[in-house]
Amino acid sequence: KKSYVLIKVKNPKTKETHTIVVPEENLEEVLKALASQPNVKVVDIERFP
């Protein structure tokens, strides 16, 4: 059974918020990819039960 993680990201320029759902096993690479985006800020990470 896969567990999923909900990542909320915000664009500081446009103030838009997006929610991305990723499998927990991919969380680290997704966070690394997001960290390299200049106008993306991770605001929240939630685990799915």
Rank of each mutant, 00 (worst) to 15 (best):
residue 1 K to H: 14
residue 1 K to W: 15
residue 1 K to Y: 14
residue 2 K to A: 12
residue 3 S to F: 12
residue 3 S to W: 15
residue 4 Y to P: 02
residue 4 Y to D: 02
residue 4 Y to N: 03
residue 5 V to P: 00
residue 5 V to L: 07
residue 5 V to C: 07
residue 6 L to D: 01
residue 6 L to G: 07
residue 7 I to W: 00
residue 7 I to A: 00
residue 8 K to M: 07
residue 8 K to N: 04
residue 8 K to H: 13
residue 9 V to T: 08
residue 9 V to N: 00
residue 9 V to Y: 15
residue 9 V to R: 00
residue 10 K to N: 13
residue 10 K to F: 15
residue 10 K to L: 15
residue 10 K to S: 13
residue 10 K to R: 12
residue 11 N to T: 03
residue 11 N to R: 04
residue 12 P to N: 15
residue 12 P to E: 15
residue 13 K to G: 12
residue 13 K to I: 15
residue 14 T to M: 03
residue 14 T to R: 05
residue 15 K to G: 13
residue 16 E to T: 05
residue 16 E to C: 15
residue 17 T to L: 10
residue 17 T to M: 10
residue 17 T to K: 05
residue 18 H to K: 11
residue 18 H to N: 05
residue 19 T to V: 10
residue 19 T to G: 06
residue 19 T to P: 02
residue 19 T to Y: 10
residue 20 I to C: 07
residue 20 I to K: 02
residue 20 I to F: 15
residue 21 V to G: 02
residue 21 V to C: 07
residue 21 V to N: 03
residue 21 V to F: 09
residue 21 V to W: 14
residue 22 V to A: 04
residue 22 V to T: 04
residue 23 P to T: 06
residue 24 E to N: 04
residue 24 E to M: 08
residue 25 E to S: 08
residue 26 N to R: 14
residue 26 N to W: 11
residue 26 N to C: 12
residue 27 L to V: 06
residue 27 L to N: 00
residue 28 E to H: 11
residue 28 E to M: 11
residue 29 E to P: 05
residue 29 E to W: 12
residue 30 V to A: 10
residue 31 L to N: 00
residue 31 L to T: 01
residue 32 K to Y: 06
residue 32 K to F: 05
residue 32 K to G: 04
residue 32 K to H: 08
residue 34 L to S: 00
residue 35 A to W: 06
residue 35 A to V: 05
residue 35 A to P: 01
residue 35 A to E: 12
residue 36 S to P: 02
residue 36 S to N: 11
residue 38 P to T: 09
residue 38 P to K: 05
residue 39 N to P: 02
residue 39 N to W: 07
residue 40 V to A: 08
residue 40 V to H: 06
residue 40 V to P: 01
residue 40 V to N: 06
residue 40 V to M: 14
residue 42 V to W: 02
residue 42 V to A: 01
residue 42 V to E: 01
residue 43 V to L: 08
residue 43 V to A: 03
residue 43 V to M: 07
residue 43 V to Y: 04
residue 43 V to W: 02
residue 44 D to E: 13
residue 44 D to N: 11
residue 45 I to V: 08
residue 45 I to W: 10
residue 46 E to I: 13
residue 46 E to N: 07
residue 46 E to H: 12
residue 47 R to C: 06
residue 47 R to E: 07
residue 47 R to H: 08
residue 48 F to G: 05
residue 48 F to S: 05
residue 48 F to W: 15
residue 49 P to A: 09
